[in-house]
Simulated scan of single mutants.
Amino acid sequence: MTLVTLAQALQPALTGGYAVAGLVTLGWEDMRAYVAAAEAEGCPVILQAGPSCRAHTPLPILGKMFRHLAENASIPVVAHLDHGYTFEECQEALDSGFTSLMYDGSRKPLNQNIDETARIAEMAHNAGISCEGEIGFVGYADGENSAGTDPEEAAKFAAESGVDAMAISVGNVHLQQDKEGGLDMQRIRAIEALTTVPLVIHGGSGVPVAQRTELATSSKICKFNIGTELRMAFGAALREAVNADPSRFDRVTILKETHDPLVAATRNVLRAFGPVNKG
């Protein structure tokens, strides 16, 4: 069994000069491909269940799916709740076998965010698992604007919340479909100068690949969340499979043809985060 906590995946990355991919899952086909790609690259992987995934599949089922994949994998796998918004949701994820809880209080005032995240972190640590928090709201493409992380607030949040990883807002945006959203290096350096906790970039699909590699190998950013980029790869493969034979109707047959293209796209993503065989 290679199921691990977020801290167990990120602490070696922090000292070893690489980053681990937090891959946003929507169903069995993509999570299976993500593990296959990580095995091929010899690196750990974080399987993430975000709000849209949870709206489609209940947390207890997702926990079993993640754990099944981890138990049969040769590389470390983290079962991670992405953007948990309530204590009850985080508790359900813990009860469902997740090994990492991300509580998102980034829209709330600093002290409230700290207090609520600290409660989730305490719950997680008492159960022997990890907690990620977010300081500085990360916005959405064509939606809410980001609020950049203040370095002093980040230092306070890291020290008082007890998180194992801290997501920051440094020019990154969720759901960005191109790779033209370069990050604010000056703000990143200011944050990491005041903190020791592994840092996380949400909206990693919008970060240029060269900058992903630079930050993975030379900063405290140890986790990049990648969703949109791989959803686009899956969608393109699915569209091609459907259009190849309009008479086909069996979804198992059609979905099989998404596997290899998604594995290939995922391997390309994983290679950007540092040397292979780091798991």
Rank of each mutant, 00 (worst) to 15 (best):
K179V: 01
T213R: 15
S205R: 06
C222N: 14
G171K: 10
P198G: 08
H174D: 03
G181T: 05
E229H: 11
A190G: 03
E192T: 04
Q211M: 15
K223M: 14
S205D: 07
D178Y: 01
L215E: 01
L183I: 05
V197W: 06
S205C: 12
N172L: 13
I221M: 11
L194D: 01
T195S: 08
R231E: 07
R231S: 09
T196K: 14
G171W: 12
L215W: 01
R212M: 15
H174V: 02
G206K: 04
S218G: 15
G203N: 08
C222Y: 02
L230H: 00
G227P: 01
L194N: 00
Q211A: 09
V170A: 13
G203K: 07
G204Y: 10
G181D: 03
E229Q: 13
Q176G: 14
R187H: 04
V197Y: 06
L199N: 11
D184R: 03
G204I: 10
S219K: 06
S219C: 12
D178C: 02
E229A: 15
H174W: 02
S219N: 07
I221D: 06
I226Y: 00
T217H: 05
L194W: 00
L215Q: 00
V170I: 15
D184F: 03
T196P: 03
S219A: 12
P208K: 08
G204T: 08
E214L: 15
N225D: 06
K179D: 14
E229T: 11
F224R: 00
I191E: 04
N225H: 08
S205K: 07
I201E: 01
E192L: 06
I226R: 00
I188N: 05
E214M: 14
S219M: 08
G204P: 12
V197P: 10
K223G: 10
G203I: 08
G227N: 05
R212Q: 14
T213N: 14
E192D: 06
L194S: 04
